[in-house]
Write a protein that binds this DNA or RNA. Structure first.
Length: 444
DNA sequence: CTCTGATCATGT
DNA sequence: ACATGATCAGAG
């Protein structure tokens, strides 16, 4: 089929709503147990749009400057929806990127527009039965400044001979995601003899979720004062560096701090200074589509953490997914932790510590792999219904992520691990590991 | 001391 | 009513 205008294309596409993939699988490539995601796009191309099934390298609707992408989303418990995965674009060629100037043609073909076909992912269903519920034409032009900035960051890292250290957390919207079936593939890079994991450009999961939820949001890029969240956060805290938690809190709220000092005092301060989590998108557009988390951490004079870093409670059913498909892998791959550090001695009390500065943490392939071991250990404990298998601290060599209790008085988090879907345990990052990550990038 | 299971005030 | 972010405090 050949469309003369974008309107014509969209008009035709309306029919796709409510259909499933098997409706278009004219060659019956989707067998009952097929899990081949790459196939879904082909099926829509050939079965719905009736394009010949060739491997011609050009935009799907080349004459209109539109690229077709088929992408899944999931329904969350709270009624919201999220993209299932990042959207993978073209492969990164380490040897040529260093000579390239940014151009959308490196990500897509000639186009800056993507026609996204959204289907609802359901772990209980076969791929052929997934329902296509909606579509949207997305124009990347509005975000081009940030995407260009991301491209430059990736390029710079390759120029520095650090292609093997690339991670999705380095950038805002455009990620460098792992590519290659086994995860063990390695490829060469121009300025280092280290072999690097092959990667592709991708639109991050959180960015896709932003697009999905906010189809018509086009950022006013002229109003972005800061290029990175780190710059923005630093600007908010810099006047308070060297000051005590108590004083900062009382200065900001004009309230006397009640006794006992709340454990989340530092969080209350960062809520005031930077914004509560829900308000963040109104503070800086970068927060709208990217997974930044503000964390607070007490450290000693050498910058060594006084505490581990905790995350939200574990949910039993989430561990039905394999590590590769899991919420937690995606979370750790894409998240950027902005860590606000407070200095204090080992027995310093909460409230008396001094604001020292900020650090940024992202996780690399090696970290992710080690997290996976912890994840799989939890998965095994659940499958065998055996609490003793849980990856509590120091359960295996090189462990950097551990399971720890997190509840209210008398919860007996471990004993009652199987009582509720939402458990009373959480993941915590090991202090030694945290220390090494805090020193990986020097900022603040 | 350090480690790690236990606990809390707050936000939603 | 309960998860969250973070610290507390007893065990060893």
């Amino acid at each position: 089929m050949n469309f003369k205008t974008i309107d014509e294309l969209l008009e035709y596409t309306k029919q796709i709503r409510g259909k499933t993939f098997k409706d278009f699988d004219i060659n019956n490539t989707l067998t009952t147990n097929s899990k081949d995601k790459g196939n879904l796009g082909k099926i829509i191309e050939t079965g719905f749009y009736k394009y010949p099934n060739n491997n011609k390298a050009e935009a799907d609707f080349a004459n209109l400057g539109v690229e077709l992408k088929v992408s899944g989303y999931i329904k969350n418990k709270n009624g919201t929806i999220s993209a299932k995965e990042r959207l993978v674009l073209g492969k990164i060629d380490y040897n040529s990127i260093v000579h390239e100037e940014f151009d959308f043609s490196h990500l897509l073909f000639k186009s800056k527009k993507i026609l996204i076909i959204w289907y609802e992912y359901d772990r209980e269903k076969d791929y052929k039965d997934f329902v296509i519920t909606d579509f949207q034409l997305y124009d990347m032009t509005g975000d081009s400044l940030i995407i260009k900035n991301d491209f430059e960051l990736i390029k710079q890292k390759v120029i520095e001979g650090k292609a093997h250290l690339l991670s999705e957390g380095d950038t805002s919207y455009l990620g460098a995601c792992p590519k290659g079936s086994t995860g063990k593939d390695r490829t060469t890079q121009p300025f280092s003899t280290e072999l690097a994991m092959p990667r592709a450009y991708s639109l991050k999961n959180s960015y896709m979720t932003g697009i999905l939820r906010n189809a018509h949001l086009i950022l006013d890029v002229d109003n972005i004062e800061y290029k990175t969240i780190e710059e923005y956060v630093f600007a908010q805290i810099q006047n308070f560096i060297g000051k005590k938690q108590n004083d900062i809190f009382e200065y900001l709220t004009h309230k006397k701090l009640a006794e006992p000092v709340p454990k989340q005092l530092s969080k209350m301060i960062s809520d005031e200074l930077i914004g509560k989590d829900k308000e963040l998108p109104t503070k800086n557009p970068l927060f709208q589509k990217v997974n930044y988390i503000i964390k607070n951490l007490p450290v000693n004079d050498f910058g060594y953490p006084l505490e581990r870093m905790s995350f939200r409670n574990l949910v039993l059913t989430e561990f039905k997914d394999s590590w590769e498909d899991s919420y937690w892998k995606n979370y750790f791959e894409e998240v950027t932790l902005i860590v606000i550090c407070y200095k204090g001695s080992k027995n310093s009390k909460n409230g008396e510590r001094i604001l020292e500065g900020i650090r940024q943490i992202t996780f690399n392939d090696e970290d992710i792999e080690l997290f996976g071991r912890t994840y799989n250990q939890v998965k095994k404990a659940i499958e065998k219904h055996d609490i003793s298998l849980l990856p509590q601290p120091k359960r295996f060599d090189g462990q950097i992520l551990e399971v720890a209790p997190k509840g209210k008085r008398g919860d007996e988090a471990y004993t009652n691990f199987f009582q509720n879907d939402v458990t009373k345990v959480c993941f915590m990052l090991d202090k030694n590991f945290l220390f090494s990550k805090l020193n990986e990038k020097n900022k603040g």
